[in-house]
Amino acid sequence: MDNQVYLKILKCFGAKGTRFTTEDLARELGTSKRTVYTYFSSKDEMIEKTIDFVFSQIIQSDTDILEDEGLPIQEKIRLYFQNIPDAYSIGTIIRHMDDFQRYYPRLYEKANHHLDRIWDGVIELVEEGMNRGELHKVDTVILKLMLNETLKKLLDYEFIAGHQVSFESGIKAMSDIVLYGLIKAEPL
């Protein structure tokens, strides 16, 4: 399926949440409702495949970093944090999680599952680095909690507008704090 279809679904979803209609999507695509139903059997399927599309892109780019045998762990971790997900796509999903929970509980669970696993690769790298003695020992449960909650806040429009921070600058600041800490290294 053409990625543009999923991007148009995200646009409709961003504008109307779960209340977008097949007619809205058909209008956005410049086609008929009948044509839309040749791609999808239901609105549930439209939303589900769009969720899969958004997270599969993130997972693929993260996997490329994780599987690069030529990179040291520290570089993989740095690149993982620079591999910023598309704020619009993932933000659209997070903004409408309440509607998912109310009207599409199965899709809510699916989106939540993806969100809970979004940092798994970097956590694996951190654990590997700690085991090799290349990284400081940290509580990875707390690290993952920090990453998850920061991501959710940075995708909250009211939060970023109220604090005059962009998603991208917030992710960079978070990654700098995680990677380089707060305390300057003592001169030798």
Rank of each mutant, 00 (worst) to 15 (best):
V36Q: 01
I51F: 15
D86V: 02
K76A: 10
N83V: 05
E23L: 14
I84N: 04
S41D: 08
R78W: 10
D52W: 06
K76M: 14
L79D: 13
A26Q: 02
E28H: 08
T22E: 06
K43Y: 02
T31Q: 08
L79E: 12
I73G: 06
F40K: 03
E75I: 15
F40S: 02
L79Q: 13
F55D: 01
Q82N: 15
D24P: 05
I47A: 01
V54W: 15
G70R: 02
I73Q: 03
T63M: 12
N83E: 07
Y39G: 02
M46R: 01
I59W: 04
S41K: 10
T18D: 00
F55H: 07
D44P: 03
I47E: 00
D62S: 07
S56P: 06
Q74A: 09
L29T: 10
P72G: 04
I47R: 02
F81G: 13
Q57H: 11
T18I: 15
N83A: 11
V54G: 01
G30S: 07
E69H: 08
E28N: 11
Q57A: 06
M46L: 03
A26T: 07
L66E: 09
S41G: 14
L66G: 02
K76Y: 10
G30P: 09
T21Y: 09
I47N: 02
Y39H: 09
N83D: 09
I65F: 09
T50Q: 04
E69I: 13
L71G: 02
D86E: 04
R27Q: 06
E48F: 05
I59N: 05
S56V: 05
D64K: 10
D44E: 15
D52C: 09
Q74L: 12
Q82M: 15
S61M: 04
P85A: 03
T18S: 04
P85M: 11
I58L: 14
L29R: 05
S56Q: 15
D24F: 03
P85E: 07
T21R: 09
Q82C: 06
K76D: 12
L79I: 04
